[in-house]
């Protein structure tokens, strides 16, 4: 497999309040590959993911998507990348289905309602379809966000601690989602503190701040 790398980072450094979290970080990621970001608490895993999304600027270094710097391809990258951060980014006053509809609207996509219901049911939310997200548990809201990820149909997934707050069953479901996505030619970048098992798939890995 010698695909040209779609996402590449060169010599990326990140500073927070005057001290350097990491520097000289680089990697390349092509279709069908996953990247695991390793590092202890406060070492800059989240900061790196936010730089890779284009939410923050690196203190130095560059990140390219399909050969162009992120800032230059904001709109294209927005269509091809989906991000689930520490906070879920779902609205508490809306039901899971409404949340997915909103996300599709904002992404300029038409939402296939049946597929959305299927995605929510697939993540074990079948009984919560009509409840506002406010009354769902933390893990259930995490699942709504992950259903949104599935519906976004993006090529690259950037996931910050996707397994946090999920029960054993949920962890297995999400691991399955990631594996299927990557094996089908997708890309994923994630951080996790939990052991991750992606059968038949060995993710690349980078470490921050060691």
């Amino acid at each position: 497999m010698s695909h040209p790398p779609l996402l590449s980072a060169q010599d990326v450094a990140c500073e927070r309040s005057e001290h350097t979290l990491f520097q000289g970080l680089g990697f390349e990621l092509g279709a069908g590959e996953a990247l695991l970001v390793r590092g202890g608490n406060g070492r800059g895993k989240t900061s790196l993911l936010r730089i890779l999304c284009g939410l923050s600027q690196p203190a130095s270094g560059t990140v390219h998507w399909r050969g162009a710097p992120l800032a230059r391809v904001h709109e294209q990258y927005g269509r091809e990348m989906a991000y689930v951060g520490h906070v879920n980014g779902i609205k508490d006053d809306l039901t899971p289905l409404e949340n997915l509809r909103l996300a599709a609207d904002l992404g300029g996509r038409a939402l296939d309602e049946d597929a959305a219901v299927a995605a929510l049911e697939g993540l074990g939310l079948g009984r919560c379809l009509d409840l506002p997200a406010r009354v769902l548990s933390f893990g259930q809201r995490r699942r709504v966000a992950l259903a949104g990820l599935v519906m976004a149909g993006a090529l690259l997934w950037i996931l910050d601690e996707p397994l946090t707050g999920l029960d054993v069953h949920g962890v297995a479901l999400v691991e399955g989602l990631i594996r299927d996505h990557v094996l089908a030619g997708g890309m994923a970048i994630l951080t996790t503190h939990q052991p991750l098992s992606l059968d038949g798939l060995t993710p690349k890995s980078v470490s921050v701040g060691d």
């Binding site: 999304c53 939410l55 927005g78 991000y83 879920n88 980014g89 779902i90 609205k91 992404g107």
Partner: peptide, 10 residues
């Protein structure tokens, strides 16, 4: 609730 990030990444 993190939805601002999603809006900015749209």
């Amino acid at each position: 609730d993190g939805s601002l990030e999603q809006l900015l990444l749209a």
